[in-house]
Amino acid sequence: MPSETPQAEVGPTGCPHRSGPHSAKGSLEKGSPEDKEAKEPLWIRPDAPSRCTWQLGRPASESPHHHTAPAKSPKILPDILKKIGDTPMVRINKIGKKFGLKCELLAKCEFFNAGGSVKDRISLRMIEDAERDGTLKPGDTIIEPTSGNTGIGLALAAAVRGYRCIIVMPEKMSSEKVDVLRALGAEIVRTPTNARFDSPESHVGVAWRLKNEIPNSHILDQYRNASNPLAHYDTTADEILQQCDGKLDMLVASVGTGGTITGIARKLKEKCPGCRIIGVDPEGSILAEPEELNQTEQTTYEVEGIGYDFIPTVLDRTVVDKWFKSNDEEAFTFARMLIAQEGLLCGGSAGSTVAVAVKAAQELQEGQRCVVILPDSVRNYMTKFLSDRWMLQKGFLKEEDLTEKKPWWWHLRVQELGLSAPLTVLPTITCGHTIEILREKGFDQAPVVDEAGVILGMVTLGNMLSSLLAGKVQPSDQVGKVIYKQFKQIRLTDTLGRLSHILEMDHFALVV
């Protein structure tokens, strides 16, 4: 994948999101292997301009796509893939009243899908469409860049269908997702969380590099694949309309690839034109409109599966009536509230959605109805927002919020430890010299600072030695090549209790 991002070429006709291997024109390309080798690009942008032909009021008969309808489940399912879809609609009884809503608040519980998330729908649909058009064949390999849930859905379907599955996901995604993927037989590649989507090191860039190296491999490409919004247009939206008897006044959905909100909203605009569509985008993402909503100094966020630093091709923002931004604290607070007060075992993005819903639905009156999409299960986040310690460490809970008995030293300040200034190293000294210094002084790690004293990161003896043994660096290389740029900081005025929580999850903390 090139470091400079080429513009994806656009073909003359058809839909841009065809499933299957992508040609340089962004659509299915038939021909000899030699032709494909000559024409197939190194990668295709996940934010390529959409060429979708959908228009409100256009006859369904003019759609270029294969459409399906929700099917009634048999008493005995032939395999677990038949437990994807037909998820329950559940009334939220307490939270709406707590925040003064007059309307009825309903939750579409997508964590009841077989793999635990709304992404099971698009995973199965992308595979079925690729099999139907002859792209996927027995023994082929599926590769997908994902925040985890699409990966789980694909790995689940691949396990049943017999495909090899490789999932490329950023490091910030939970260990629970990784464990589930491994249990399903998927191979996992992790990428830096802070890598831009168009960087060769991003999950998108690495996935395309693997595709170019592995024979008979395919990126189904949830960011561009029409099967993504079509899955929701054909099934999720129809289920909502049936469950609500066609009567709903507002739908609120958090947005990642945009397939969920695009597919549902398009069908609702056709069948229930008075329904307002509300999009939820986390602070630090750029999906919301108008652009002024996205202006923030924050560039990272903890909530998973929603928000991006690019506009995915499948996201149709014209069908969203209003956007709201959400933050991590309210997302996790509301997710825990949904679990504790409503018994809905949902993930953090569901918290984002409901946090926005109780604001947006203030305009609705008694007798009206708001539906929220709860995308995934708490299963993926047992060591994250479900953990009091994690919430404390991230600053989303305060010590006084917890009532468990603490040891005698818990409320003492870090400054009472009488710490001395640490050994520091410059980023320009060599790895070999740094190892000598650390061994001589008896230290395992040291902060790396520039000549102005600005902290650049941390270097550890173990990481340097393993990097040297693996051949990633040489003793003569500058130590700046092996620094940890993500590390926890703590102030002298913070409590030892807070430091204790940090050290339970990290090997060190830097006192500043």
Rank of each mutant, 00 (worst) to 15 (best):
D133G: 06
P229F: 02
D221Y: 14
D35N: 13
L220F: 05
S199G: 02
H218C: 12
E171V: 11
L101F: 07
G26I: 02
G263H: 06
R276C: 09
K36V: 02
H22R: 14
H218V: 15
C103G: 11
C15P: 02
S3N: 15
P16K: 11
A159V: 13
P215I: 05
E239V: 02
L251H: 11
G116R: 11
T236M: 10
H17P: 08
E4R: 05
L220G: 06
K30W: 09
P12Y: 09
G205S: 08
A265D: 02
R164I: 02
P12D: 02
K97I: 12
Y223Q: 15
W208R: 08
N113E: 02
D198C: 10
I264H: 07
N212R: 14
Q7I: 05
A237G: 11
A114V: 08
P170F: 05
E40S: 14
G256F: 02
R125L: 05
E270N: 06
P200Y: 11
H66S: 09
T150L: 04
A231C: 15
P138T: 12
I76M: 15
R132G: 05
L28N: 15
H203I: 02
N225I: 02
P46T: 04
H66W: 09
L124Q: 15
S61H: 02
K83M: 07
A231T: 15
C275T: 05
R164D: 02
G246D: 13
P64V: 02
A69P: 15
L184K: 02
Y223V: 02
C109V: 15
L105E: 02
L105C: 07
V160K: 02
K108W: 02
H232F: 02
L268Y: 07
G100H: 02
F197I: 08
I44S: 02
P6S: 15
S3C: 10
G14S: 07
K177C: 02
K211L: 09
P16A: 08
E104R: 05
R91H: 02
G26Q: 04
Y233S: 05
K97F: 12
D35W: 02
A60G: 02
A231E: 05
V160P: 02
E34V: 08
E34W: 07
A186Y: 02
E144C: 06
N212W: 09
V118S: 07
I80P: 04
H17D: 04
A253G: 02
G116S: 02
